[in-house]
């Protein structure tokens, strides 16, 4: 679920990426979002130092999905002591690629007039799910057959108090599309597809036992 977000894709609440004590008084917190097909890095800068901060810039290290700022970091005014400013930085996925561990790790450098600071953050994979990730049913069936068993992983999702239609709607607003739903011996089996920004498809099966809050995703 997402606070205050009955529709639209899920946005994780902002967390502190760089505490002020590690960055000469600059505190950076943020989150990632996908809005209308655009990936955005929502960042809050707070000046906890005694001096004014100016000349901000941001740079990403190469990363698994080529995330890169699509525009320079623009802070409208210098940041006075105790001032906070919020910025939404649009991101592209055409930057340099290097496989990271974990896959969704992003290393960031931020500079201001005082120094250069570095931090890492983990972005949620749903920001990479594109709007045209609904696979044709025939293609889905053929592709599913071709997936080697080594490429299948299974996870338990605990404590989810939603029925399969609610789950399906919530996932669809995150570009995870339900291709088919079948009821076998009382349990709902949902077949779903999604496509990453780099063109890689993911196929999923979600098993929901009515009355049980524990799901199995393969």
């Amino acid at each position: 679920s997402g606070v205050g977000m009955p529709t639209g894709s899920y946005v994780v609440p902002k967390t502190v990426w760089l505490p002020a004590m590690k960055a000469k008084g600059l505190e950076i917190s943020g989150t990632f979002a996908r809005r209308m097909g655009t990936i955005q890095m929502d960042v809050t800068f707070t000046n906890k130092a005694m001096q004014i901060m100016t000349d901000f810039a941001i740079q990403f290290n190469r990363n698994s999905f080529g995330l890169s700022p699509a525009a320079p970091l623009q802070l409208a005014t210098p940041l006075s002591p105790n001032q906070t400013i919020e910025v939404s930085l649009p991101l592209s996925t055409v930057g340099p690629v290097m496989k990271m561990d974990p896959l969704n790790n992003l290393q960031v450098a931020v500079k201001n007039n005082i120094d250069v600071f570095y931090f890492s953050s983990l972005y949620p994979i749903n920001i990479l799910f594109v709007e045209d990730g609904k696979m044709e049913r025939q293609v889905f069936l053929a592709t599913w057959k071709d997936i080697p068993s080594d490429n299948e992983a299974q996870f338990q999702i605990k404590d989810c108090h939603l029925n399969s239609d609610a789950v399906s709607n919530k996932l669809q607003s995150n570009n995870i599309f339900t291709i088919a739903k079948r009821n076998v011996e009382g349990q709902d089996m949902l077949y779903q597809s999604m496509k990453l920004t780099n063109g890689i498809w993911i196929l999923a099966e979600l098993r929901i036992q009515p009355g049980s809050p524990n799901f199995t995703v393969s």
């Binding site: 069936l141 088919a180 079948r182 076998v184 011996e185 089996m189 393969s218």
Partner: peptide, 20 residues
């Protein structure tokens, strides 16, 4: 909806996954 045989194919898939 046109019966393209895919409905049946998904039913078979779900059943085979349930009883491998």
């Amino acid at each position: 909806e046109i019966d393209d045989g895919l409905d049946e194919a998904f039913s078979r898939l779900a059943e085979s996954r349930n009883n491998p």
